Simulated assay, not measured.
Amino acid sequence: MAEELERPGAEQWVPESGGIAALRRAAPGCRGCELWEPATQVVFSSGSAHARIVMVGEEPGDAEDLAGEPFVGPAGKLLRRAIEEAGIAMEEVYLTNAIKHFSFVQRGKRRIHRKPDLAQMVACRPWLEAELRYVDPDLTVLLGASAARQVLGPGIKVTQQRGQVLTRETTLGERRFIPTVHPSSILRARERRHDAYAAFVADLKVVAKAV
């Protein structure tokens, strides 16, 4: 029961109107789960509220937590390079995460990324749902399994369906999604990094053609 009280969910903090600007203003006050407390700040989103493409990651990392902006660390820099190589203009991209606070374990002076649990994902979902409603993109790119499951449910298999345009019925009507890997997985690939990066760019080229 105590754990449930710590995770009331974000819904009560999500404004009912006002668009992306109102969401960004309200997000720092969210207490929907316990992740807000150890984090430096909320990391909401970047990019135009009228973007044609939304890219959704799992959660901010250490660099993002300090900067207050998504995808500014090593994985983010790799993502931005891949977006450019795929022929997508950054002006057409809205970047966000399924979780808005950095989840980590403190080890000495280092903060090590910790995968958010299901309850935290559920608690934070109203923010992402509101973002997708307001931006209403032509295509949503799901970066990694956590983001894909947050949006499309547990049945999605990124390794099998990456780079494919998936059409799903949503509360906004029929919408299109493309799952792919999270750029952090490419950084972890080491000896296979070149091939992993090339495959990632190929997925993003599918995105470019689809819009």
Rank of each mutant, 00 (worst) to 15 (best):
L187W: 06
P137V: 01
G144N: 08
R52G: 15
E85P: 06
R25I: 11
S184T: 11
S185E: 11
R188T: 04
A75W: 03
R162T: 06
V158C: 05
A123G: 10
E6R: 15
A2Y: 06
K209F: 00
A63M: 08
A130N: 03
S103G: 11
F102I: 02
K205S: 11
H194Y: 06
L66P: 00
L143E: 01
T180A: 13
R125K: 14
E16I: 09
G61E: 04
W36T: 03
Q120H: 12
A210P: 01
E64P: 00
E131A: 04
K205N: 07
M55F: 02
A10E: 01
V56W: 05
Q120K: 14
E16W: 08
P183Y: 03
G173D: 07
E92H: 13
R111Q: 09
F200N: 07
V201Y: 05
A145V: 11
A208L: 08
K157A: 12
A98N: 07
R80W: 03
E16L: 15
K109A: 11
P183K: 03
E11R: 15
E191T: 10
L152G: 10
A196R: 14
V72P: 06
L204P: 02
S146C: 07
A82C: 15
L78G: 03
S146Q: 13
G19P: 09
E34I: 07
A198L: 14
E131Q: 15
E6F: 06
P179L: 07
I112P: 00
D203H: 13
V206N: 07
A82R: 04
G47M: 06
E84V: 15
R125N: 05
V206K: 13
V105M: 13
R149L: 05
K100Q: 12
A210T: 14
V14F: 04
A202P: 01
A189C: 10
G29V: 02
R168F: 06
F102D: 01
R188E: 05
I186N: 04
A86H: 05
D65G: 09
V54F: 03
R176N: 08
S184H: 08
E58S: 14
R110S: 14
P116M: 10
G73Y: 01
Q161D: 06
A22H: 05
P8G: 10
V151L: 09
L78M: 12
V72Y: 09
S48Q: 08
L95Q: 08
P183G: 10
